[in-house]
Nucleic acid binder design. Structure first.
Lengths: 161, 161
DNA sequence: GGCGCATACTTCGTACGCTAAATATCTTTC
DNA sequence: GAAAGATATTTAGCGTACGAAGTATGCGCC
């Protein structure tokens, strides 16, 4: 019964929630982008830089998994970061299919002096919520995410011809 | 004090919320895209089509305002929809700077026979929430959105040199 | 009635972001 | 141990998405 959504009751909250969600996401993204620009970075490049900072290197697949993008997308992002001298590619010795992405000295320096976190605006306003709201929001969003994950999983591997 | 966010207490909920939010948004978008594809549309094209369906025509700016994109982005989307015969551009008589985007017969037919709503997956799981959670979620998100709007407004017009 | 400013849209260049197909390497299986 | 299948990455092509600059039109004001 996972795919039956009767829609008997057109909840009035629904559109408002959707609208707020889209607004928050797109606006935060836009602001992150403009903040990153001040350091000569794009939004996704900032995300990659901050992801590499604590660990130094990651495989391309590990990166794409964490930023929820496809490998082909991350290939492009890394191309430009490599062109700008922020990272280098290095073939793994254990598995020669794998490419490790490593921070260069320049990349590390930039990561350190860049105080912006991805989705900074979002974090800022979230931090202003009281503990009650914060916990509620977390609980409800995780519930939604779990449902989506279930539906996606079961619908995997049967696209309409 | 609008820009001072002490970050004294690194709330543990924060990252989980952010993660769930990004997951829900990107996954819903991805699914909408693949559903739209079954009707020969892209995600944004579906959004525009559904937005035009009830009213028939809108100015390009009105469209870009509602889908939270810039005019230059929407110009491209409309270019491709016009190429595919779904809409036509018509200069406004009252204000000759304005371009109205109108559904063609083909566009209207497609809109009618396309049962997918934008962010369908998101709507589906939202509709499963109880009224309590639904109201809470709405209240909290609107509070966040209001704060973002305030911050964006006050920071408008002073980018770093 | 023309000058300056604002608004609506387009064009251009860059950067994602995706799918499908190609390449290279690993793993399994017989 | 070679063929068959799985996995990691890249390439190519298309469609957003943005900012900056350009064009056309409207509007206020002297």
């Amino acid at each position: 019964m996972a795919q039956a959504f009767p829609r008997i009751d057109p909840q009035p909250d629904l559109d408002a929630i959707l609208e707020a969600m889209v607004y928050l996401y797109t606006e935060s993204r836009r602001i992150t982008k403009s903040l990153a620009l001040a350091h000569g970075l794009t939004g996704p490049q900032l995300v990659v830089l901050k992801m590499l900072e604590p660990v130094g290197k990651l495989s391309l697949s590990a990166l794409s998994g964490r930023i929820r993008a496809k490998n082909s997308t991350v290939t492009g992002i890394i191309d430009r970061m490599e062109r700008d001298g922020l990272v280098v590619r290095r073939r793994s010795e254990e598995d020669r299919r794998v490419v490790h992405i490593e921070l260069t000295a320049k990349g590390r320096r930039l990561a350190e002096e860049t105080d912006v976190e991805p989705m900074q605006m979002f974090r800022d306003v979230l931090a202003e919520l009281g503990p009650r709201d914060s916990a509620d929001l977390r609980r409800i969003l995780m519930k939604l995410a779990r449902r989506v994950r279930d539906v996606v999983q079961t619908h995997e591997g049967e696209p309409p011809p």
